[in-house]
Computed example of a mutant assay.
Amino acid sequence: MKDLKVVIIGAGMGGLTSAIALRQAGYKVEIYEKVNKIRPAGAAISLWSNGVKVLNSLGLSQEIASIGGKMERTVYYSHTGEKLTDFSLQPLIDRVGQKPYPVARTDLQEMLLNTLGANNVHLNAKCIGVEQDSNSVTAAFEDGHKATGDVLIGADGTHSVIRSYVLGKAIERRYVGYVNWNGLVTASDDLAPGNTWAVYVGEHKRASMMPVGGDRYYFFFDVPMPKGSVSSPETYREELSSFFKGWAEPVQKLIQRLDPMKTNRVEIHDIEPLQTLVRDRVALLGDAAHGTAPDLGQGGCQAMEDVLVLTNYLQTTNLSVADALKRYETARKDRVADIITRARKRSDMTHGKAPEVTQQWYEALKHEDGTDIMDAISKTILAGPLN
């Protein structure tokens, strides 16, 4: 279809990428964001090959390579520092046809904004309602402004207003069961090799360092905890030192070197898989459509896949906007439901939901040469639209 006007609600990673893709497809695009200054949610993100390939298709291959981390190996350690497995990611790269690029969210956001043009994002625009008829769809904003187009994309994140409109009701997010601290720290060989994703596991917890651009590591700590625990940056280091007491020396050094005031603490949630991703001229995308635990590293990549598939159907279907969006829904709902379900299952295994299962995983890592891990990652990647 030609000469469409697309209204996008949300200027996060999914919203910005969809704005770039749809503009390149020849559509008029307006993008609205409720905050008065765009700030990334979280410190960094794992972009596996399926996400990277979407950016490549938008002409951003050099840009993403320049800000992505050079992640060439993966190593797992026990919490006391025993090396469990250490392997090259090259067989995975050969199989899927693209290097992964862990990337700082600020760098990714800056890249996308520079490509789109930051002045093209309407800030301080909180969407409070949607109306549509057979010819158009209109978003209403808190300040009284209205934006009318042929298509409306809800890329407004895990607390999506547009999702409530599409479903006809609000839904509660589900607490996955653990708290995640994450941030960025200067790379150093006494923490981890600069080309390696290092993961420490034990006591149903994890500590991880992953290289990103700018000679930094993206780090995270996972601790199973009841929902609703209260904390503040002033106590993060003390808390982490307590939770990870007795863990290997690189973990202790990481805790001492992180900046608590620049560290995020998040209770991890997901949503139940949705059977409905569209309502006539309105489509959900990214976390609004499929908020998932980060345990497969696929949250951002699935938003990128959404963009690719949605753009393709709008370009190639000439029956109607609603028809194109229903085809998008059909193509995506089982894929993203599978990601949510398997990320939840992996989270349970990793974080001691059934302690004997977690212990079996620790033991299996001692005999792992990378084959099973890379097989699982490649199957996840190749099940998508870029296989």
Rank of each mutant, 00 (worst) to 15 (best):
T330Q: 15
L184D: 09
R265C: 12
W181K: 05
M374A: 13
L152Y: 01
G299Y: 01
A207W: 01
S241H: 14
V282K: 03
P91N: 07
K34Y: 10
P100K: 05
P193Y: 07
L16H: 00
Q360V: 14
L84R: 07
T317S: 07
G149P: 02
K326M: 06
Q360N: 15
D150L: 08
V282Q: 05
G12T: 00
Q360S: 15
Y77R: 06
N195I: 11
L258A: 06
G370N: 09
A288G: 15
A343I: 07
D348Y: 10
P233H: 04
W181H: 06
V52H: 03
D156E: 13
A125C: 11
F243G: 02
S134W: 03
A303K: 00
A147L: 09
V179D: 02
S136N: 11
R279A: 01
E272I: 00
W247E: 05
V199Q: 02
P250V: 01
T80H: 13
W361S: 09
K353V: 11
A288V: 08
C127V: 12
A324M: 09
F141D: 10
A364Q: 15
L47Q: 05
A198D: 02
L382W: 07
N387F: 05
T330G: 13
G214D: 04
V278M: 12
G149W: 01
D372N: 12
L116N: 09
V35D: 11
K353H: 15
A322N: 09
K227P: 09
F243W: 12
K126Q: 15
G168D: 08
I31P: 00
K345C: 04
R281W: 08
A21D: 02
I20A: 13
Y217G: 04
L112W: 04
D287Y: 02
Q256V: 06
V6D: 00
Y313P: 03
R173M: 10
A322D: 08
L58Q: 10
A44P: 02
D215R: 13
S61Q: 10
N264L: 15
D143I: 09
L274T: 00
D3T: 06
L319D: 13
P273Q: 05
G10N: 09
A343H: 07
I255N: 04
E142I: 07
S347F: 03
W48R: 01
L296Q: 03
S188W: 02
G26H: 13
F220R: 00
A21Y: 06
K146R: 15
I20D: 10
D107S: 09
L386T: 13
A207H: 06
V130H: 01
W247P: 03
S88Q: 11
E142G: 04
K70G: 03
K262E: 10
T316L: 10
M210I: 14
K366P: 12
E249T: 14
Y101C: 04
G157W: 01
A65F: 03
L55E: 12
R206S: 08
G246K: 15
M210W: 01
H122I: 05
E110L: 12
G97E: 08
N180H: 11
K253I: 00
H290W: 05
G286S: 01
D372C: 06
A43V: 00
A293F: 03
G68K: 03
M71K: 13
K53I: 11
A19C: 08
F221L: 04
S232Q: 04
L123A: 08
T263C: 13
A104D: 04
I373P: 12
H145V: 10
W48V: 01
A364R: 15
A207G: 06
F141E: 09
L22W: 00
D190K: 14
F141K: 11
L60K: 02
I20W: 10
G15D: 02
